[in-house]
């Protein structure tokens, strides 16, 4: 009985497994292969040693990724918390508004920000009325890059947190109040711990694309900022050094895996579940 069932489930899982092999495992091997070979296809560690030059780039990427994740969290958490207390109807409308930009292409969204932030952009024109315009506009700055990341990835932070919040058992919250908890106690001792799985998946879903983005930094950073995503892209696109590009990707991947493992440590201890990832 049991055996039969597991055979059946294996069979049903087959397309998924095939898909994973073709699109995940094979590319991974290709990346590893390129990372440890030179242009002639011989084994070498040179690509890895060459990465030393990219340490500042890695650090900058990590820093921007962390910063935008933190800002997203600071905005998204209270937002999701308050939203979950609204009436069911307003919750639906608000969620629609949040999802709306996600239906637009990333390129278009980023271009719109360029139009807003550039020297003759809308923002500067408005500020000009008050005599506050910035001489060079706001593009091509670290701030613009972080803004772009926050804007693009904020919904990925809100969604998982909101999903968990809206499923919180109201009587558990009431119980905390009943036992003497004021609003802050309830938030700190009950709501936050119970929403942790959502927070963790939110952080992962924002941090990973922020660290590895190249488009946002190119357009809003104006090329004055080289993030690790840009470095990888240029190795493949212009420098045509697949081997270095692959080793950069590999290290980025390892970094991301490590940060995800650290994040998951937080939720492993309790199995309340509900994480989206």
């Amino acid at each position: 009985m049991n055996k039969k069932k597991s055979f059946l489930s294996n069979l049903l899982a087959a397309p998924h497994i095939l898909w994973s092999i073709i699109f995940i495992v094979v590319p991974l091997f290709v990346v590893v292969y390129y990372a440890f070979t030179n242009a002639e296809g011989d084994f070498t560690l040179e690509n890895i040693f060459e990465l030393k030059a990219y340490i500042p780039t890695f650090l900058l990427s990590l820093w921007y990724g962390l910063l935008s994740t933190l800002i997203c969290f600071i905005i998204a958490y209270p937002f999701a918390y308050i939203l979950s207390q609204f009436s069911a109807n307003s919750q639906r409308v608000m969620m629609m508004l949040i999802m709306l930009p996600m239906w637009m292409n990333l390129l278009i969204r980023t271009y719109s920000w360029m139009l807003i932030l550039e020297r003759n952009g809308i923002l500067n024109k408005v500020l000009d009325i008050f005599g506050l315009a910035s001489e060079n506009g706001f593009l091509n700055s670290g701030g613009a890059v972080v803004l772009g990341m926050v804007y693009n990835y904020l919904p990925y932070m809100i969604l998982p947190i909101y999903t968990i919040m809206s499923k919180l058992d109201p009587s558990v919250v009431a119980a905390a109040q009943d036992l003497g908890g004021n609003r802050f106690d309830v938030l700190r001792r009950v709501v936050f711990p119970l929403s942790l799985p959502g927070v963790v998946s939110g952080i992962t879903m924002v941090f990973v694309p922020s660290v590895s983005t190249f488009y946002i930094s190119q357009k809003l950073g104006g090329g004055s900022f080289m993030l690790i995503g840009d470095a990888i892209e240029s190795q493949f696109q212009s420098a045509n050094n697949f081997n270095l590009g692959a080793s950069l990707s590999l290290v980025l991947m390892v970094l991301i895996l490590i940060s995800m493992a650290v994040m998951n440590k937080f939720t492993d201890s309790d199995d309340t579940g509900g994480a989206i990832v």
Binding site: S171, A176, V190, T272
Partner: peptide, 13 residues
């Protein structure tokens, strides 16, 4: 006053 809720409402964490 303290309440015992219809569905216990214990803290799962």
């Amino acid at each position: 006053v303290n309440t015992i809720f219809q569905r216990y409402a214990l803290f799962p964490h």
